[in-house]
Computed example of a mutant assay.
Amino acid sequence: MTDRVPDGLAGRILSSWGDWTGPVVESAVFGTTDPTAIAGLIGEWAVRHLGSPVASVLWYHASVGCASGLVLADGTRVVVKAHQPRFHADYLAAAVAVQSHLAAVRYPCPTPLGGPEEIGVGLATATLLIRDDSGAMVPDTVSAVAALVRLTTYVDGMAHCGYAEGHVQVEHLAPHPLGALRDGALYPEPYSPAFSFRDDESASWIDRYAGLALAACADDNGPLVVSHGDWSPRNVRGDRFGVSAVFDMDSLVLTTEARAAGHAAASWLLGPDPIGTVLDPSGIEHFLWLHQRIRDYWLAPHELRAAWGAALWNLAHLARCEHGVGTAGAALAALAAHGGEIAARCSG
Rank of each mutant, 00 (worst) to 15 (best):
D3R: 15
D7T: 12
G8K: 06
L9M: 02
A10Y: 03
G11E: 05
I13C: 10
I13W: 08
L14H: 13
S15F: 13
G22N: 02
G22H: 02
S27H: 11
A28C: 03
F30C: 05
P35A: 11
P35K: 08
A37K: 05
A39M: 06
W45A: 12
L50P: 08
P53L: 08
A55R: 13
A55F: 04
W59F: 10
L70R: 02
V71Q: 05
T76P: 00
R77T: 03
V78Y: 01
V79L: 01
V80Y: 03
A82E: 02
A82P: 04
H83L: 05
Q84L: 08
A89T: 13
S100V: 13
A103H: 08
A103M: 01
T111L: 10
L113W: 00
L123W: 04
A124R: 01
D132A: 04
S134L: 04
G135R: 11
A136P: 07
M137R: 11
P139C: 15
A146R: 13
L148M: 13
V155E: 03
A159S: 15
E165W: 13
Q169P: 07
L178F: 09
G179Y: 00
R182A: 12
D199A: 03
A203D: 11
R208N: 15
Y209P: 06
L212I: 15
L212W: 10
A215M: 09
A215R: 14
D219Y: 09
D219L: 13
S227V: 00
P233C: 05
V236N: 12
D248G: 13
S251F: 04
R259P: 14
A260W: 05
A264T: 00
A266C: 05
L269S: 11
G271D: 11
G271N: 08
D273I: 09
P274E: 08
G276T: 01
S282V: 14
I284P: 07
H286T: 14
L290Y: 00
L290E: 00
A300Y: 11
H302N: 10
L304Y: 08
R305D: 08
A306L: 01
A306V: 02
A306W: 00
A310V: 00
A310C: 00
L312Y: 04
W313G: 12
W313M: 11
N314Q: 11
L315R: 05
L315T: 12
L315A: 06
A316G: 10
L318A: 12
R320M: 01
E322D: 00
G324W: 01
G329C: 01
L335E: 03
G340L: 14
G340Y: 14
A344I: 11
